[in-house]
């Protein structure tokens, strides 16, 4: 009986450790966007992106505060927040989706793997389905995720005044760079 109890304890402990190790998180993810328009180049950085990945189910989320994007020019930052993404009305952007080929990635083995990511991107109060490619580099028990993709401002009902139409690209390049670590509660 004692032996059975001991085995159950060990199994429970092992399962607990495994469950914890299934989730990888960061609060310091980086998103950089770049608008390459004929008359102006605009870029901004956000270094406090929350992201979580469940390596078993493939569930993958992002949460970003729009007002945390930092621009070189104060005027651009003002226009971005007040006129374009209306941060006062829509302070958050988020992505909720899945790594659809998660079973093809060996998170126990060092290496760089292609990831197919699909889900809902919510920005400016509009949700769009997206499907993008990225890479996961597994190393030293951490997962380094990178992806570059493009979003069309019109898809998210972001209106660009005619007077500055040549200053802002129709499609914005978005670079995501996250270093996910095991969640240890």
């Amino acid at each position: 009986m004692k032996r059975m109890f001991l085995i159950l304890m060990i199994v429970s402990l092992a399962m607990g450790i495994q469950l914890q190790a299934q989730k990888y998180i960061t609060k310091n993810g980086k998103i950089h966007f770049y608008s390459d328009a004929p008359t102006e180049k605009i870029e901004a950085f956000n270094n406090q992106v929350n992201s979580a990945l469940d390596i078993t189910s493939g569930d993958f989320i992002f949460r970003v505060l729009m007002k945390s994007f930092q621009f070189e020019k104060a005027l651009m930052q003002e226009h971005f927040n007040e006129n374009y993404v209306e941060s006062h009305k829509f302070p958050n952007a988020s992505f909720v989706g899945k790594v659809t080929n998660v079973t093809e990635i060996d998170f126990q083995k060092t290496g760089t793997y292609q990831a197919q990511i699909e889900g809902d991107l919510n920005l400016h109060g509009i949700t769009q389905k997206i499907s993008e490619q990225g890479t996961f580099e597994v190393k030293d028990g951490k997962i380094h995720g990178k992806s570059t993709f493009y979003i069309a401002v019109a898809d998210y009902d972001i209106k660009i005044p005619q007077a500055v139409i040549t200053n802002i690209a129709e499609k914005i390049e978005v670079n995501v760079d996250i270093l996910l670590e095991p969640l240890n509660k």
Binding site: K27, Q48, N50, R63, V64, L65, M66, K67, S68, Q70, S87, P91, N92
Partner: peptide, 12 residues
Amino acid sequence: CTGYNQTDVILE
């Protein structure tokens, strides 16, 4: 204050 990301309130 730039907002709340459902986890933390963020101050820059």
